[in-house]
Design a protein around this nucleic acid. Structure first.
Length: 553
DNA sequence: AATGCCTGCGCC
DNA sequence: AAAGGGCGCAGGCATT
């Protein structure tokens, strides 16, 4: 397969190097060249330093690419990969690659903070990464991971470009219903103020600011309520007339500040919500988001995510992704058997491992998060006997972390090392009891992190493969138009995707979403026969997903 | 005025 | 005695 490396040159120029030679051209000539090579070659792999910098201008020019290699993501990943000989990653500009931060489309044009970072040789770094991976005993898995990570970066750019369809009128109607009319700048909505006034009156505190935690705690205590915090769960346990308006105030305040009118102004344009995604933004490989709060499109406002006329949203999520991942990566046959159906927890009940579905859930979550006490902790002990490989795997990851050792995901992503050696402050003095306790607690915390890392990280790898395969299928499904006129991904969150599609293709999209999940399972888990059943809904509004309306069985 | 930590919420 | 992973975001509050 052809690899075509793109590097920035001084003066808005670009170097294009495909192994058979290099050419230079002006930056504005690039979209035509890319479109031409996409059509002529059989899906070349575009090699560049950062998808978030190269791809948005291409998308804006109507050019979609099939494959890429994101060298920054690849570099970060390989630098942490335990199965890689790190010496092979050294060489010219390696230190600059080490320091690269994710770029945004805007800053790419405005700033060139570091001249060396601006003019890196993509072909040189690409060759280095290829060589290092080829020399690794886990070259196959690492190669898959790099490809999936890069495909994810393409998806991220495309989703920001296309945007999640967003009906501002629906959203604003909801805001007015719950909060009252939009207040002038600096003022608070009427219904929010009304709730605050009820709280002030019931607590006999006319000047109380209910958003101030210390003030609120004091006011509650003056009423004889023994509280030390103001969490909703704490408040719900109290018996006092102030609880209802207080909880209502909290909810309305949250709606107003995080998904209110200002959020709309800032994040919705031309009927689309365009959050910015950051692939591998979390150390486990999960994506993060740095704008718009795409990681929590709250249930409250999902009614505003509505497909265009003649279009539908296909919403799909995986049931119990991480327990299934654990079954697959540990090779635990008993857990894999429980995972064969649509409900893994129910499968555990039917196998007689636990008495109830809820116990199954508590026990598994406890194992993956490191619960040691309470009901969850007790369940973990019992389930360890029933599912020794699965529970043993997370237990072993936790022990490694407690010893200060790192762990890796199934495809080879390494976790960050434990931070801050405890005895560095005064290396010669014998540690006192308190610092010993601190150290022990720090190691346990790292153990909980490594325990979760292996599962969460491998889950993220499955999801990336799912996304990558689905992206290709959607493109092939859609005819000849540009991206936004075909079925295309508009949202992704850990184990859930949303596709915006012309209505007549919705069923075909639903089938492709399923097929892509099966492909991802085979790619990541090879022989291990673990199902990844989806719940798929074809809906007009995101809020209607998962209600069983047109869910496939 | 800007920065960073804390609390609390919500998403997985 | 306490012992639950990963994120983003907003407001309050202390610090500079």
């Amino acid at each position: 397969m052809t690899r075509i490396a793109l590097s920035r040159l001084p003066g808005e120029r670009v170097a294009v190097s495909d192994g058979s030679g290099a050419v230079e051209l002006a930056r504005e000539e690039l979209p035509d060249l890319v479109a031409e090579r996409e059509a002529r070659d059989d899906e070349p792999r575009w090699v560049w330093d950062d998808t978030a910098r190269w791809y948005p201008p291409l998308l804006a020019a109507g050019v979609r690419v099939a494959r890429c290699q994101d060298l920054r993501l690849g570099h970060d990943l390989l630098r942490r990969a335990p199965a890689l000989d790190q010496a092979l990653m050294d060489g010219p500009d390696a230190d600059v690659w080490d320091r690269l931060r994710p770029g945004g489309p805007s800053e790419a044009v405005l700033f060139s903070v570091d001249d060396r970072a601006e003019h890196l040789r993509a072909d040189v770094e690409d060759a280095r990464q290829l060589r290092a991976v080829a020399a690794s005993p886990e070259s196959g898995r690492l190669g898959l991971l790099l490809a999936a990570e890069s495909a994810g970066a393409l998806v991220a750019a495309e989703m920001t470009y296309a945007g999640l369809p967003w009906r501002v009128d629906v959203h604003e109607r909801l805001l007015v219903e719950r909060l009252g009319p939009r207040p002038p700048r600096g003022a608070r909505p009427a219904l929010l103020e009304a709730a605050a006034d009820e709280v002030r009156s019931l607590l006999e505190a006319p000047r109380l600011n209910p958003d101030s935690q210390p003030e609120l705690v004091n006011a509650l205590r003056r009423q004889g309520l023994a509280v030390t915090d103001t969490r909703a769960s704490t408040l719900r346990r109290l018996e006092h007339p102030v609880v209802e308006p207080l909880l209502r105030h909290k909810q309305l305040a949250h709606l107003w500040t995080t998904n209110g009118w200002e959020w709309i102004d800032q994040w919705v344009r031309d009927g689309r919500f365009r959050p910015s995604y950051q692939p591998a933004g979390s150390t486990t490989g999960r994506w993060s988001s740095n704008g718009g709060g795409a990681l929590s499109v709250p249930v409250q406002v999902r009614t505003a995510a509505v497909a265009d006329e003649g279009w539908r949203l296909v919403v799909a999520d995986v049931a119990q992704l991480e327990p299934r991942v654990l079954a697959g990566m540990s090779g635990d046959r008993a857990l894999a058997a429980a995972a064969r159906g649509g409900d893994l927890y129910q499968g555990m009940v039917e196998a007689g491992a636990v008495a109830s579905r809820n116990e199954a859930k508590l026990g598994l979550l406890g194992a993956m998060y490191g619960a040691t006490t309470g009901q969850s902790g007790r369940l973990v002990a019992g389930l360890t006997r029933r599912y020794p490989q699965a529970f043993g795997l997370v237990e072993e990851a936790a022990r490694a972390g407690e010893r200060g050792e790192g762990v890796r995901t199934l495809l080879g992503r390494g976790c960050p090392p434990i931070s801050g050696a405890w005895d560095q402050e005064s290396p010669d003095a014998p540690p006192d009891e308190e610092s010993l306790a601190r150290e022990a607690s720090r190691r346990r915390a790292y153990g909980r992190f490594t325990r979760n890392f292996v599962v969460q990280g491998t889950g993220a790898e499955w999801a990336l493969c799912w996304l990558a395969d689905l992206r290709g299928r959607l493109w092939r499904l859609g005819g000849n138009g540009p991206l936004e006129q075909r079925p295309h991904l508009v949202f992704f969150l850990h184990d859930e995707v949303v596709v915006h599609t012309p209505t007549h293709l919705a069923e075909a999209v639903a089938a492709d979403v399923e097929a892509a999940a099966a492909t991802a399972g085979r790619l990541v888990f090879r022989g291990a026969a673990v199902d990844f059943p989806l719940s798929v809904s074809v809906v007009a509004s995101y809020a209607d997903a998962g209600k069983g309306g047109s869910a496939t069985p």
